[in-house]
Write a protein that binds this DNA or RNA. Structure first.
Lengths: 231, 231
DNA sequence: GGATGTGAACGACTTCACAGCG
DNA sequence: CGCTGTGAAGTCGTTCACATCC
């Protein structure tokens, strides 16, 4: 009844490279994070066992994931960290700069802008928008806050590709629609609602309340409510 | 080599209820969210098709997920929304109040405190901590900011069960250790690092940079870099 | 008719086990 | 020897199809 994309295997638009599972991709960013840390610590060769330990998964899993990047590993030695980083970044599509805008300049937006590690990974924020007239015209981290009705114009001018939705729930869908109309290609949604987007516009949603609920559930399980483990 | 909890099926501490897959639990919060919305809109009976459409999954999937809550559905009719909500909340362990503390009073903490929907779902923040002496003693949303060295004392006194880590990367692990030592049972980590926690303390991690990378990858795939689909 | 609950089929992900190489 | 790459096996999750009930 409900039609859903049945393709679980992600096939890159350019035909060449081997298959790639969604689950692997979800871990690529984590590999990247740990590899960069290893490199900072002076470790230049990393084994699947080390990476697995860092992510709390098995070494076999790591090798399977990394296999689709080409034969980067050296038997008996491990993987050269910097090459692996380059390959991962290339495969994730972040071996270039991505530009993004943020709609809704509240505390969350401020947190995002201050967050180290975005520009470090090649992301750059190029514009801010807010519906609140009193915020418009102000500057935050060298970025001017624009009125929402100038979204189309400014997004086109800056060529921004990604949009972050950090507005209250009620406004989220209309903001998303505006972003799509302005030509944005992907949306990161923090509003606790399921956005409806046309095909061709990607979506990643982060619902903070959901995360807390998952945590509560895990705790609920381990120290059960009836059966309290006092040990 | 790397040992990982192999139990993919979650078995509640109290033996009685049927099996429960992790994947289902991940969707329970979302069902809850949509059911509450349905109820607000006056819809009191919801079918698996409606729920599936809301979450963009199949109706069969919805029924499978909901099956482990007992036979709540009425053939030919659907599920009574309020009963389903109660059952989900019970199963998730959020049919009671959970108390939490936040460590690191930056913009993210402010965003969390202002976020509607936490207390609405039964979560209550009872204390804030910060290492910055200039912040200590200040008040945020009626909550006093305490120095980090009083964590053990205050967490015991308030009986807080969950801890939110919203500090810079460098401080994350030591804050987590302190939370664990103070008797916290679950940690929601926003710092971009993999926390090491003892067994018995649950962990949910939200890495914002990882989310943006996932989004970039999705966009990278759909409008490939070489092969641009202008349609 | 319309919708649930569920075994069975299917597909995806993970782990195992081992050949092969440096 | 240590570690990679990979088929094979095993596990988990989703979809299908249909008996069943209101």
């Amino acid at each position: 009844m409900n039609k859903v994309d049945p393709a679980q295997h992600v096939t890159p638009a350019n035909g060449g490279e081997p298959r790639l599972s969604r689950a692997s991709v979800a871990r690529f960013s984590l590999y990247l994070r740990h590899l960069q840390r290893f490199l900072r610590e002076g470790v230049q060769t990393v084994s699947s066992g080390q990476l697995g330990e860092a992510l709390a998964i098995t070494d076999a899993q790591v090798r399977k994931d990394l296999a689709c990047l080409g034969n980067l590993g050296h038997p008996g030695v491990g993987y050269p960290a910097s090459e692996l980083i380059a390959a991962l970044r290339h495969r994730l599509g972040i071996d270039r700069e991505w530009t993004a805008v943020v709609v809704g300049v509240g505390n969350l937006a401020r947190a995002l802008l201050r967050y180290r590690g975005f520009e470090q990974q090649g992301f750059r924020f190029v514009a801010l928008f807010d519906a609140d007239a009193s915020k418009v015209g102000q500057t935050l981290d060298d970025l001017k806050i624009h009125p929402t009705d100038r979204m189309a114009e400014i997004i086109r001018k800056t060529g921004a590709e990604l949009g972050v939705v950090a507005v209250p729930v009620e406004a989220a869908q209309s903001v998303a629609d505006a972003l799509v109309a302005a030509g944005i290609r992907g949306i990161l949604n923090f509003a606790p609602t399921a956005l409806r987007l046309p095909a061709g516009v990607s979506l990643v949603a982060v619902d903070l309340a959901v995360q807390l609920e998952q945590l509560a559930f895990l705790v609920h399980l381990t120290h059960g409510p009836e059966k309290l483990e006092t040990h």
